[in-house]
Design a protein around this nucleic acid. Structure first.
Lengths: 210, 210, 210, 210
DNA sequence: GATGAATGAGATTTCATTCAT
DNA sequence: CATGAATGAAATCTCATTCAT
């Protein structure tokens, strides 16, 4: 909808300092949602705590904005890639996985799944939001790839719910173990690309018609 | 005097710690370490806040006790099983995995890995404790199985550090996604036994000499 | 009153373990009244906290008992000494001062004045008690010595209120600075006897007829 | 809108710390360090408990600030007086003593020595701080006076450590007994100036060459 | 008489949120 | 727009006192 009278919320949104969202992402990932103090977010962004409340009506709102501004656009890009991709589905799957790893797995964003898994229980509204905006949409992404593969006869008939989750799980796991798992089950960063290659091969192997 | 009024307290010296530990495990797993209020732990155990401090000197101490009394003994049992096992190593691995899943994966204890992953960064002392008492010891468990398999010529030569972690990771993941991940990436409980069977087969396949 | 039916309070009093009073004195002097935990007093006396309450109805009561059993009898002895003393008043003053220093100044009892000075404000009932039972009675002691000296023509006419206090002050000061003043204005223990000699000479000098 | 309702708070950035320090000094002196509740300090300053923590990071920090803002500057002034004084050392000593009595002895600050003596044992860090910032510096003050007197041939050769302490002790004592010693050994305020005159004469007498 | 488990009010400290300026 | 002082509820931990056994 390109109406000329943008709602107030929309106009503000444009002005929202990226610094606040960057600082918030950084601290949320570093310390978790509950343990992050808005004081610190504001300080890290170089503004006062009051200013933060000009842009975000609450801590939860700030978190949602972080998710909306950081991960959600990437889902859009990925959807675009699927729309326009012209090669075979195996290439698409590989491409998608690699670019997804580059834009999420190797950045701070990789901390969000761990964060959500840890805090979802205490912040149901956040859990609902994340589930809808990120997880469901991410799963739909893979569902489309699998559907494309099946339509082209490249892969066997799979269960679109179960197999999607099975395919996604290992990568989530890799991310959670990478950033800031603080000595608990940590994996050395330089090993991660090896993991990723193994993952892609194994995953596709489990999909092709034998 | 058998008056109808409940006495303000009852002497329950022996029962108290167990009740407190059970309540604490429940709440820690449900809400995480930081978000669990000792008030609630006490209330859940049917005692006052002060009573909790008769048995545990601090919140961290309570958490350590939970870990010590619940998970650590299971590691002892597992070590015993390895000592006495007489069949081939594949059976041992299968047996170990299944009994471990029964005693941990299917109980509240499955919530601890998620908890630790989420809060390790904010409670370094707890992370250190858990790493030493549980993770390191758990890894040694699997290391012994792999060594046994190699000595008997049942499995190929493996890297005792890397491959151990790779083998453990999927099960940790299953547990974290099962209990209380509150709609984020959750897997239906009845599917988990299928996951487990897949895991065992895949894991052993990756170990045997091809 | 030597009636054969001692009141219950009196009978109990005899049985009161000296250990409790000793432990209490020790800890009160070491840490102050408010900061001393009855838990610790009981533990130091080798009994349970409940037992303490069999003998003393409250923390304040325990403190009063400490004072009554430790300092007050010494005042009685001193009064006896004055009654029976046969030498001149200067000897009496010297004797009194020295024995007082031996039985109070050099023992844990020296900690009580500091304690009272610090905590009197927060425990008015204790302050009242100490003032009546110890300070007033101690001052009367010296008043009697001064009266005796004046009657015998040994010393000049003095103000029984002001001069008594002036004479007592330095010794109180010495005690407060000795025990447990924890690096604040502390005086080395071996210097104290020198202080005492100086004090006696100076004090008597200020009293004799010039 | 000049509504009749008092606003929940007023911006008083500059005034707050002073009000808090004044309230804190008052209550610390009145009740001691441990027995003073920050709640009461805040209330006395007309703010909430949380506000107090905007200015002072802990109870100990508040106490240190009280000392730093109240007593320490006076030591600076006294040092200045010594630097610039041109008369003989006896006048300097008298002047110093009198002005010190006026600015400390007659104000609430006189309560601090009593406070420290009482609580030093339980708060070692506070004791260390007070010893370094106040006592040591105060003693150096008198040492300089005595050195000046010796250099000018006005006084005999004295022991700079021992005699300094001996000279200071009586005045500390006067202060401790004056304010809030709550009927324990209390001296009437109007008598104190007589004490002070006696002290100055006696002290100087003990210093001059006989 | 003796015990010690239990209590609960109260202390310090933290932090999301508000709102006059 | 921006500020940051102020709030107050809530969390952990302490300890004098009670009372069933």
């Amino acid at each position: 909808m390109s109406c000329p009278f943008k709602p107030k919320w929309e106009r503000r949104k444009e002005a929202r300092p990226k610094e606040l969202l960057a600082a918030a992402l950084h601290l949320f990932v570093e310390r978790g949602f509950a343990a992050t103090r808005l004081d610190d977010v504001a300080k890290a962004a170089g503004v006062s705590k009051g200013t933060l409340y000009l842009y975000f009506s609450s801590k939860e709102d700030l978190f949602k904005a972080v998710v909306r501004e950081s991960i959600v656009p990437l889902l859009g890009e990925a959807e675009g890639m699927i729309d326009e991709f012209e090669g075979n589905t195996e290439s698409l799957f590989r491409q998608l996985t690699l670019s997804w790893w580059q834009s999420i797995g190797e950045t701070k964003l990789s901390g969000l799944p761990k964060l959500m898994m840890g805090e979802a229980g205490n912040f149901p509204e956040l859990a609902r939001f994340y589930q809808e905006e990120v997880i469901a949409r991410g799963e739909r992404l893979l569902v489309r790839v699998l559907e494309r593969g099946m339509e082209c006869g490249e892969i066997r008939k799979v269960d679109l719910e179960i197999d999607t989750r099975l395919l996604i799980a290992p990568v989530i796991m890799m991310m959670m173990m990478w950033k800031h798992s603080s000595c608990v089950c940590q994996i050395e960063p330089e090993k991660l690309s090896v993991y990723l290659e193994h993952y892609i091969r194994m995953a596709w192997n489990s999909l092709v018609i034998r």
